[in-house]
Amino acid sequence: MGGAAHEVAETRGPTAPERLRQIARWVWRGLFQDKVPLWLHVATVLGTVVATIVLAPIVGHAFEQQKLKATFVIEFLANLDAATGELISEVADLRACRQRAPQSCQAEERAAVVTIAMLRWKALQMDALLTEPEDRAAVDRLYVALNRVEGDLAPRNGAAPGADPNTRAIAAASFELTRRIARRSGVTLRW
């Protein structure tokens, strides 16, 4: 009886640690000695070819998409920032013009209206890009601020256009949208 149990243990094969040692020796001989099997060479070459043909275009396409997305977002945000600054400057110029000569400020008023139209177009683009309710609420705040500033452009009893709270509201809404778009697209801004 004792002999039969002993024979069964011997026919089982190597234990797990022994098997790991055998695999390690085989890998060592195959990788670091001159005894690399031909099938391993062929498998490595075929694996490299398949990876190059299949994976390289996929990875390249993903990087190209990310690059285009980042470029678009950065240019979009730069244009939004420039237009916001331009509108605030134009409203200040219009305010100064109306204090000097209220009847001769049509060019300044027209420039401000054109910039408001450009910012409305940017807001429309942002509305299409952003899907979260909080982001859309930020776009709505920009629309409201633009409407208030446009309403302030019309001369009323000699009052200066674009009261500071309204132009500050545009700057705040524009900054908030810039921050939200940058965060959603994974672009880091350093201002």
Rank of each mutant, 00 (worst) to 15 (best):
M1N: 02
M1K: 07
G2M: 06
G3Y: 09
A4E: 09
A4Q: 12
A5W: 02
H6D: 12
H6V: 07
V8S: 08
A9E: 10
A9N: 06
T11S: 07
G13T: 05
T15H: 05
T15G: 04
L20K: 13
L20W: 15
L20I: 15
L20S: 08
Q22N: 05
I23L: 15
R25E: 13
R25T: 09
W28C: 06
R29C: 09
G30W: 00
Q33H: 08
Q33S: 13
K35Y: 09
W39K: 02
W39F: 04
L40T: 07
V45I: 15
L46H: 04
G47Q: 04
I53E: 08
V54C: 11
L55E: 03
A56E: 05
A56Q: 08
I58T: 05
I58Y: 06
V59Y: 01
V59G: 14
V59A: 10
G60A: 07
H61A: 13
A62E: 10
E64R: 04
Q66P: 07
K67I: 08
L68C: 00
K69Q: 07
K69I: 03
K69W: 12
K69A: 02
F72A: 14
F76D: 04
F76I: 00
L77I: 12
T84D: 06
T84Q: 12
G85W: 02
L87V: 02
S89D: 06
V91N: 05
D93W: 01
R95W: 04
A96D: 06
A96L: 12
C97F: 01
R98G: 00
R98E: 11
Q99F: 01
Q99L: 07
Q99C: 00
R100F: 03
A101I: 09
P102D: 15
P102K: 14
P102Y: 13
A107M: 01
E108H: 03
E108C: 02
E109G: 11
E109V: 04
A112Q: 01
A112E: 03
V113E: 09
I116V: 12
I116M: 14
I116P: 14
I116R: 06
A117R: 05
A117Q: 12
M118H: 07
L119T: 03
L119K: 04
R120S: 15
K122A: 04
K122E: 05
M126K: 06
D127R: 07
L129S: 11
L130W: 01
L130Y: 03
D135S: 10
D135Y: 00
R136I: 02
A137K: 07
A138D: 11
D140L: 14
Y143H: 15
Y143F: 04
A145W: 02
A145Y: 02
R148D: 12
V149D: 10
D152Q: 03
L153C: 13
L153P: 06
P155H: 06
R156P: 00
R156G: 00
R156W: 05
G158I: 11
A160G: 00
P161V: 01
T167L: 11
A169L: 13
A171K: 13
A172Q: 10
T178F: 01
R179Y: 09
R179K: 13
R179H: 10
R180V: 09
R180I: 08
I181D: 04
A182R: 04
R183I: 04
G186V: 05
G186R: 05
W191K: 01
W191P: 14
W191G: 15
